[in-house]
Design a protein around this nucleic acid. Structure first.
Lengths: 135, 135
DNA sequence: AGCCTGGATAGACGGCCGTCAAGATAGAGC
DNA sequence: GCTCTATCTTGACGGCCGTCTATCCAGGCT
């Protein structure tokens, strides 16, 4: 019971801090070694994206007319129950990837572009998009 | 037991196919809705990255002199046993994110830039990587 | 007010995965 | 060939997470 902690996520980082922590590491990840806490925050956001359903949700929302979609439209795109979709949307929202607002009867979701941009620029290997630049 | 499948990963996609599947969706994710199989493949790669230890491994390898690092150097950077690090390296290797080669006694690992680039361009919201890009 | 619909929450269940200890394998050097 | 070191593999354990059912909350309508 000393070290064996099951999984390496003993501490959950709330959304606000998360932003800071991820920002703290805005160099391309492969430029210099990131800190332990930056890795934790970054992994938290990536884990939110690392699910087929949530990826499709992000894609559906982003590709939807006006960049917004209501839950009813999203739910019908899957063979999953509405609570399950609601759960996935919550995960994405808590990771700062999407935002939502209630408008009358329906709840609308849209992407937070900064979140995906941050991920993209972190993963971009320095010179970025040099398909074969390996010397 | 008809639908309840525990998690949405009934089918594992081997590395070769994975490349194809992820390539099949090289539009920025938020441009148009991705297919179910593309989402599965993409999620598989993201899940490999969505772990603090593996992120730090990628970062350590990428930032290491010469872009290469041997396992012994990586192991000492963590409070984890060597088999655990080896396991994480295997996950990254099977996801196509890193590659390895044995050189005498030591095994060296390096990044596969195309993998991270692919991820970055998929996540980049259309205009992509505004932080430093020309515009 | 009462009902209906869209959506979120709570609780439970089962599989996946991160971790470790122990053993196996591959070169290097004697 | 034997030993030693570096690394991988195997098997087991425990927690996390994706899914469901059941229930609750919020608005609109009559």
């Amino acid at each position: 019971m000393s070290i064996q902690a099951g999984r390496g996520t003993p501490e959950f980082i709330p959304a606000a801090e998360l932003r800071v922590v991820v920002d703290a590491c805005s160099t391309p990840l492969v430029r210099e070694a990131i800190s332990e806490s930056a890795a934790a925050g970054l992994a938290q956001v990536l884990r939110a994206l690392a699910d087929p359903v949530r990826l499709r949700l992000v894609s559906l929302i982003g590709a939807h007319e006006g960049g917004q979609a209501c839950v009813c439209e999203l739910t019908t795109a899957f063979d999953l129950t509405q609570p399950t979709i609601s759960h996935h949307l919550k995960v994405l929202r808590e990771a700062g990837i999407i935002a939502s607002e209630r408008r009358g009867t329906w709840v609308h979701y849209w992407l937070v572009p900064a979140a995906l941009e941050r991920m993209a620029s972190l993963l971009a290997p320095v010179g970025q998009i040099p398909p074969m630049a390996g010397a």
